[in-house]
Simulated assay, not measured.
Amino acid sequence: MSDFFNIIFSVDFGYAVLRVTTPILFAAMGALISDKAGVINIALEGMMLIAALTGVIVSALAQSAGLGLLAAVIVGALVGMILAYFALNLKTDVILAAIAINLIAMGGTVFILFMVGGDKGISSSLPSKVLPRIDIPLLKSIPVVGPILSGHNILTYMAFLSVWVMYIFIYKTPLGLRIRAVGENPDAADSVGISVRKIQYIALTLSGALAGFGGAYMSMGYVSWFSKNMTAGRGFIALAAEAMGGATPHGAMFTSLLFGLFDALSNSLQTLRVPAEFIQMIPYLATVIGLVIYAANKTEQIKRIQAQKERQAGTKTEKGKTT
Protein backbone atom coordinates (compact mmCIF):
# COMPACT_ATOMS: atom_id res chain seq x y z
CA MET A 1 0.00 0.00 0.00
CA SER A 2 2.87 2.37 0.77
CA ASP A 3 4.26 1.79 -2.73
CA PHE A 4 0.87 2.75 -4.17
CA PHE A 5 0.77 6.06 -2.30
CA ASN A 6 4.39 6.75 -3.21
CA ILE A 7 3.39 6.46 -6.86
CA ILE A 8 0.26 8.61 -6.53
CA PHE A 9 1.95 11.46 -4.68
CA SER A 10 5.07 11.58 -6.82
CA VAL A 11 6.12 14.32 -9.21
CA ASP A 12 6.40 11.81 -12.04
CA PHE A 13 2.75 10.82 -11.61
CA GLY A 14 1.59 14.44 -11.79
CA TYR A 15 3.66 14.92 -14.93
CA ALA A 16 2.18 11.74 -16.44
CA VAL A 17 -1.40 12.89 -15.78
CA LEU A 18 -0.94 16.01 -17.91
CA ARG A 19 0.90 13.99 -20.55
CA VAL A 20 -1.81 11.38 -21.04
CA THR A 21 -4.63 13.93 -20.73
CA THR A 22 -3.45 15.80 -23.84
CA PRO A 23 -5.00 13.62 -26.60
CA ILE A 24 -8.22 13.18 -24.61
CA LEU A 25 -8.52 16.94 -24.14
CA PHE A 26 -8.01 17.71 -27.84
CA ALA A 27 -10.66 15.15 -28.79
CA ALA A 28 -13.01 16.43 -26.07
CA MET A 29 -12.79 19.93 -27.55
CA GLY A 30 -13.59 18.39 -30.93
CA ALA A 31 -16.59 16.58 -29.46
CA LEU A 32 -17.71 19.82 -27.81
CA ILE A 33 -17.81 21.98 -30.93
CA SER A 34 -19.71 19.38 -32.97
CA ASP A 35 -22.13 18.80 -30.10
CA LYS A 36 -22.79 22.54 -29.88
CA ALA A 37 -23.80 22.43 -33.55
CA GLY A 38 -26.21 19.57 -32.92
CA VAL A 39 -24.08 16.82 -34.51
CA ILE A 40 -22.54 13.99 -32.50
CA ASN A 41 -19.07 13.13 -33.79
CA ILE A 42 -18.24 9.61 -32.68
CA ALA A 43 -15.66 9.32 -35.47
CA LEU A 44 -13.07 11.06 -33.26
CA GLU A 45 -11.32 7.74 -32.69
CA GLY A 46 -10.84 7.13 -36.40
CA MET A 47 -9.88 10.74 -37.08
CA MET A 48 -7.15 10.60 -34.43
CA LEU A 49 -5.84 7.32 -35.80
CA ILE A 50 -5.67 8.58 -39.39
CA ALA A 51 -4.03 11.84 -38.26
CA ALA A 52 -1.47 9.93 -36.18
CA LEU A 53 -0.36 7.91 -39.22
CA THR A 54 -0.36 10.98 -41.47
CA GLY A 55 1.89 12.88 -39.07
CA VAL A 56 4.42 10.04 -38.98
CA ILE A 57 4.51 9.55 -42.76
CA VAL A 58 4.74 13.25 -43.66
CA SER A 59 7.30 14.07 -40.98
CA ALA A 60 9.41 11.12 -42.11
CA LEU A 61 9.25 12.06 -45.81
CA ALA A 62 9.71 15.82 -45.27
CA GLN A 63 12.01 15.44 -42.24
CA SER A 64 9.96 18.15 -40.53
CA ALA A 65 7.84 17.74 -37.42
CA GLY A 66 5.99 20.98 -38.21
CA LEU A 67 4.89 19.73 -41.63
CA GLY A 68 3.87 16.44 -40.07
CA LEU A 69 1.67 18.26 -37.57
CA LEU A 70 0.16 20.46 -40.28
CA ALA A 71 -0.61 17.44 -42.46
CA ALA A 72 -2.20 15.58 -39.53
CA VAL A 73 -4.49 18.53 -38.72
CA ILE A 74 -5.47 19.01 -42.38
CA VAL A 75 -6.26 15.31 -42.81
CA GLY A 76 -8.33 15.36 -39.60
CA ALA A 77 -10.28 18.33 -40.95
CA LEU A 78 -10.79 16.56 -44.31
CA VAL A 79 -12.17 13.46 -42.59
CA GLY A 80 -14.53 15.77 -40.68
CA MET A 81 -15.67 17.23 -43.98
CA ILE A 82 -16.21 13.73 -45.41
CA LEU A 83 -18.36 12.84 -42.40
CA ALA A 84 -20.31 16.07 -42.89
CA TYR A 85 -20.84 15.30 -46.59
CA PHE A 86 -22.25 11.86 -45.90
CA ALA A 87 -24.40 13.01 -42.97
CA LEU A 88 -25.62 16.36 -44.29
CA ASN A 89 -25.64 16.01 -48.08
CA LEU A 90 -26.32 12.31 -48.57
CA LYS A 91 -28.50 12.13 -45.42
CA THR A 92 -26.63 9.11 -44.09
CA ASP A 93 -27.16 8.38 -40.42
CA VAL A 94 -24.31 10.26 -38.75
CA ILE A 95 -23.71 7.48 -36.21
CA LEU A 96 -23.39 4.80 -38.90
CA ALA A 97 -21.16 7.05 -41.02
CA ALA A 98 -18.91 7.68 -38.01
CA ILE A 99 -18.71 3.96 -37.20
CA ALA A 100 -17.70 3.32 -40.81
CA ILE A 101 -14.90 5.90 -40.53
CA ASN A 102 -13.67 4.27 -37.31
CA LEU A 103 -13.62 0.81 -38.89
CA ILE A 104 -11.89 2.07 -42.04
CA ALA A 105 -9.29 3.83 -39.90
CA MET A 106 -8.56 0.67 -37.89
CA GLY A 107 -7.75 -1.44 -40.93
CA GLY A 108 -6.82 1.25 -43.42
CA THR A 109 -4.01 2.75 -41.36
CA VAL A 110 -2.33 -0.66 -41.05
CA PHE A 111 -2.66 -1.22 -44.81
CA ILE A 112 -1.26 2.24 -45.69
CA LEU A 113 1.60 1.79 -43.23
CA PHE A 114 2.54 -1.47 -44.94
CA MET A 115 2.28 0.13 -48.40
CA VAL A 116 4.47 3.10 -47.44
CA GLY A 117 7.08 1.56 -45.18
CA GLY A 118 6.58 -2.18 -45.40
CA ASP A 119 5.92 -2.32 -41.65
CA LYS A 120 3.25 -4.42 -40.02
CA GLY A 121 1.76 -2.86 -36.91
CA ILE A 122 4.47 -0.32 -36.03
CA SER A 123 6.34 2.28 -38.09
CA SER A 124 9.84 1.09 -37.23
CA SER A 125 11.30 1.80 -40.68
CA LEU A 126 10.02 5.39 -40.95
CA PRO A 127 12.43 8.03 -39.51
CA SER A 128 9.60 10.24 -38.24
CA LYS A 129 10.18 13.40 -36.25
CA VAL A 130 8.99 14.37 -32.78
CA LEU A 131 7.52 17.72 -31.77
CA PRO A 132 9.69 19.63 -29.25
CA ARG A 133 9.34 19.84 -25.51
CA ILE A 134 9.26 23.23 -23.83
CA ASP A 135 10.97 24.13 -20.56
CA ILE A 136 9.32 27.18 -19.00
CA PRO A 137 12.24 29.27 -17.61
CA LEU A 138 10.91 30.47 -14.25
CA LEU A 139 8.38 27.72 -13.65
CA LYS A 140 10.83 24.84 -14.01
CA SER A 141 12.81 26.10 -10.99
CA ILE A 142 9.87 25.89 -8.59
CA PRO A 143 10.03 22.73 -6.44
CA VAL A 144 7.34 20.08 -7.09
CA VAL A 145 5.19 22.33 -9.29
CA GLY A 146 7.97 23.03 -11.79
CA PRO A 147 8.76 19.43 -12.72
CA ILE A 148 5.02 18.71 -13.09
CA LEU A 149 4.09 21.68 -15.28
CA SER A 150 7.32 22.31 -17.20
CA GLY A 151 9.08 20.20 -19.82
CA HIS A 152 5.98 18.98 -21.66
CA ASN A 153 5.50 18.57 -25.37
CA ILE A 154 4.37 21.75 -27.08
CA LEU A 155 1.01 20.14 -27.92
CA THR A 156 0.27 19.61 -24.22
CA TYR A 157 0.35 23.37 -23.67
CA MET A 158 -1.65 23.88 -26.85
CA ALA A 159 -4.29 21.43 -25.60
CA PHE A 160 -4.92 23.39 -22.40
CA LEU A 161 -4.72 26.68 -24.29
CA SER A 162 -7.39 25.35 -26.66
CA VAL A 163 -9.84 25.26 -23.74
CA TRP A 164 -9.67 29.05 -23.36
CA VAL A 165 -9.69 29.55 -27.12
CA MET A 166 -12.76 27.33 -27.42
CA TYR A 167 -14.55 29.24 -24.66
CA ILE A 168 -13.91 32.58 -26.39
CA PHE A 169 -14.83 31.15 -29.79
CA ILE A 170 -18.13 29.60 -28.70
CA TYR A 171 -19.37 32.30 -26.33
CA LYS A 172 -17.74 35.51 -27.58
CA THR A 173 -17.76 35.36 -31.39
CA PRO A 174 -20.56 35.67 -33.97
CA LEU A 175 -19.70 32.27 -35.48
CA GLY A 176 -19.82 30.66 -32.04
CA LEU A 177 -23.25 32.21 -31.49
CA ARG A 178 -24.44 30.74 -34.80
CA ILE A 179 -23.08 27.32 -33.87
CA ARG A 180 -24.95 27.37 -30.56
CA ALA A 181 -28.11 28.63 -32.25
CA VAL A 182 -28.03 25.81 -34.79
CA GLY A 183 -27.44 23.23 -32.07
CA GLU A 184 -30.20 24.50 -29.80
CA ASN A 185 -32.90 25.14 -32.41
CA PRO A 186 -32.00 24.60 -36.07
CA ASP A 187 -35.45 25.63 -37.33
CA ALA A 188 -35.28 28.95 -35.50
CA ALA A 189 -31.72 29.51 -36.77
CA ASP A 190 -32.83 28.77 -40.33
CA SER A 191 -35.75 31.18 -40.00
CA VAL A 192 -33.38 34.10 -39.37
CA GLY A 193 -31.15 33.29 -42.35
CA ILE A 194 -28.49 31.08 -40.77
CA SER A 195 -27.42 28.20 -43.03
CA VAL A 196 -27.73 25.17 -40.77
CA ARG A 197 -25.84 22.88 -43.16
CA LYS A 198 -22.96 25.36 -43.53
CA ILE A 199 -22.58 25.81 -39.78
CA GLN A 200 -22.61 22.05 -39.16
CA TYR A 201 -20.03 21.61 -41.92
CA ILE A 202 -17.79 24.13 -40.17
CA ALA A 203 -18.31 22.48 -36.78
CA LEU A 204 -17.46 18.99 -38.04
CA THR A 205 -14.43 20.30 -39.92
CA LEU A 206 -13.11 22.04 -36.80
CA SER A 207 -13.92 18.92 -34.78
CA GLY A 208 -11.80 16.86 -37.17
CA ALA A 209 -8.95 19.38 -37.00
CA LEU A 210 -8.90 19.19 -33.19
CA ALA A 211 -8.92 15.39 -33.38
CA GLY A 212 -5.99 15.77 -35.80
CA PHE A 213 -4.02 17.60 -33.11
CA GLY A 214 -4.75 14.74 -30.72
CA GLY A 215 -3.69 12.13 -33.23
CA ALA A 216 -0.49 14.01 -34.08
CA TYR A 217 0.37 14.14 -30.38
CA MET A 218 -0.06 10.38 -30.06
CA SER A 219 2.55 9.59 -32.74
CA MET A 220 4.79 12.68 -32.54
CA GLY A 221 4.73 13.57 -28.84
CA TYR A 222 3.43 10.80 -26.61
CA VAL A 223 5.62 8.34 -28.51
CA SER A 224 7.75 8.74 -31.65
CA TRP A 225 6.11 6.14 -33.86
CA PHE A 226 2.77 4.90 -35.15
CA SER A 227 1.36 1.58 -34.02
CA LYS A 228 -1.83 -0.31 -34.78
CA ASN A 229 -4.87 1.12 -32.94
CA MET A 230 -2.59 3.30 -30.81
CA THR A 231 -5.44 5.65 -29.84
CA ALA A 232 -6.84 2.79 -27.73
CA GLY A 233 -10.33 4.21 -27.28
CA ARG A 234 -9.29 7.74 -26.36
CA GLY A 235 -11.75 9.19 -28.88
CA PHE A 236 -14.63 7.48 -27.09
CA ILE A 237 -13.29 8.49 -23.69
CA ALA A 238 -13.25 12.09 -24.96
CA LEU A 239 -16.94 11.82 -25.84
CA ALA A 240 -17.64 10.73 -22.27
CA ALA A 241 -15.49 13.59 -20.93
CA GLU A 242 -17.40 16.14 -23.01
CA ALA A 243 -20.77 14.81 -21.86
CA MET A 244 -19.78 14.61 -18.20
CA GLY A 245 -18.32 18.11 -18.41
CA GLY A 246 -21.76 19.51 -19.19
CA ALA A 247 -20.81 20.38 -22.77
CA THR A 248 -18.66 23.29 -21.59
CA PRO A 249 -14.94 23.83 -22.35
CA HIS A 250 -13.83 24.02 -18.74
CA GLY A 251 -16.05 21.15 -17.64
CA ALA A 252 -14.66 18.98 -20.44
CA MET A 253 -11.12 19.93 -19.35
CA PHE A 254 -11.68 18.82 -15.76
CA THR A 255 -13.29 15.52 -16.76
CA SER A 256 -10.49 14.94 -19.27
CA LEU A 257 -8.02 15.43 -16.43
CA LEU A 258 -10.00 12.92 -14.37
CA PHE A 259 -9.80 10.30 -17.10
CA GLY A 260 -6.16 11.22 -17.66
CA LEU A 261 -5.53 10.53 -13.98
CA PHE A 262 -6.96 7.02 -14.27
CA ASP A 263 -5.00 6.43 -17.48
CA ALA A 264 -1.79 7.51 -15.77
CA LEU A 265 -2.70 5.33 -12.80
CA SER A 266 -3.03 2.29 -15.05
CA ASN A 267 0.44 3.00 -16.47
CA SER A 268 1.99 3.52 -13.03
CA LEU A 269 0.48 0.38 -11.51
CA GLN A 270 2.46 -1.75 -13.95
CA THR A 271 5.42 -1.41 -11.60
CA LEU A 272 3.43 -3.15 -8.83
CA ARG A 273 2.28 -6.75 -8.68
CA VAL A 274 -1.16 -6.05 -10.09
CA PRO A 275 -2.71 -8.31 -12.77
CA ALA A 276 -2.17 -6.82 -16.22
CA GLU A 277 -5.82 -7.37 -17.17
CA PHE A 278 -6.99 -5.26 -14.22
CA ILE A 279 -4.53 -2.50 -15.08
CA GLN A 280 -5.67 -2.35 -18.71
CA MET A 281 -9.34 -2.02 -17.80
CA ILE A 282 -8.91 0.89 -15.32
CA PRO A 283 -9.39 3.80 -17.79
CA TYR A 284 -12.41 2.17 -19.41
CA LEU A 285 -13.94 1.12 -16.10
CA ALA A 286 -13.57 4.70 -14.87
CA THR A 287 -15.31 5.91 -18.04
CA VAL A 288 -18.26 3.55 -17.54
CA ILE A 289 -18.64 4.43 -13.86
CA GLY A 290 -18.40 8.14 -14.67
CA LEU A 291 -21.09 7.87 -17.35
CA VAL A 292 -23.39 5.91 -15.01
CA ILE A 293 -23.07 8.62 -12.35
CA TYR A 294 -23.58 11.34 -14.95
CA ALA A 295 -26.66 9.60 -16.40
CA ALA A 296 -28.16 9.08 -12.93
CA ASN A 297 -27.68 12.76 -12.04
CA LYS A 298 -29.06 13.87 -15.40
CA THR A 299 -32.13 11.67 -15.00
CA GLU A 300 -32.74 13.01 -11.52
CA GLN A 301 -32.41 16.57 -12.80
CA ILE A 302 -34.93 15.92 -15.59
CA LYS A 303 -37.38 14.41 -13.08
CA ARG A 304 -37.09 17.47 -10.86
CA ILE A 305 -37.73 19.80 -13.80
CA GLN A 306 -40.76 17.75 -14.88
CA ALA A 307 -42.14 17.70 -11.34
CA GLN A 308 -41.69 21.47 -11.09
CA LYS A 309 -43.54 21.97 -14.38
CA GLU A 310 -46.38 19.73 -13.21
CA ARG A 311 -46.69 21.70 -9.97
CA GLN A 312 -46.75 24.97 -11.90
CA ALA A 313 -49.38 23.60 -14.28
CA GLY A 314 -51.49 22.42 -11.32
CA THR A 315 -51.26 25.83 -9.67
CA LYS A 316 -52.43 27.56 -12.86
CA THR A 317 -55.36 25.11 -13.17
CA GLU A 318 -56.46 25.77 -9.59
CA LYS A 319 -56.31 29.54 -10.15
CA GLY A 320 -58.42 29.14 -13.31
CA LYS A 321 -61.08 27.17 -11.43
CA THR A 322 -61.14 29.74 -8.61
CA THR A 323 -61.66 32.56 -11.11
Results as ranks from 00 to 15, higher is better:
M1P: 06
S2N: 10
I7E: 04
L18F: 15
V20A: 10
P23F: 01
A27D: 02
K36C: 09
V39Q: 07
N41R: 11
E45L: 09
M47W: 02
I50Q: 01
A52K: 00
V56C: 02
I57H: 13
I57P: 04
A60N: 08
A60V: 13
L61F: 11
L61V: 14
A62W: 08
Q63H: 11
S64N: 11
G66F: 14
G68A: 14
A71P: 09
A72Y: 07
I74K: 06
G76Q: 08
Y85C: 10
F86M: 13
I95K: 07
L96P: 02
A100N: 14
M106Q: 08
T109I: 08
I112P: 01
K120L: 13
G121E: 12
S128F: 07
S128Q: 09
P137H: 13
L139P: 05
S141M: 12
P143Y: 12
P147Q: 13
N153R: 00
I154D: 03
I154N: 01
L155M: 02
V163P: 05
W164N: 05
Y167C: 02
Y171P: 05
K172L: 14
P174E: 10
L175W: 05
G183C: 14
G183R: 07
E184R: 11
P186D: 13
V196L: 10
I202M: 02
I202K: 00
L204T: 03
L204A: 05
A211F: 01
G221P: 04
Y222G: 05
F226G: 01
T231E: 14
R234E: 05
F236M: 00
G245S: 06
G246F: 11
T248A: 10
P249A: 07
H250L: 11
G260I: 12
G260A: 13
F262K: 02
D263F: 04
S266P: 08
N267R: 14
S268D: 13
P275T: 02
P275K: 01
P275V: 00
A276V: 06
A276L: 10
I279L: 02
I282H: 10
Y284V: 00
L285S: 07
A286V: 08
Y294W: 15
A295T: 15
A295R: 08
A296T: 12
Q308V: 09
G314E: 15
K321Y: 15
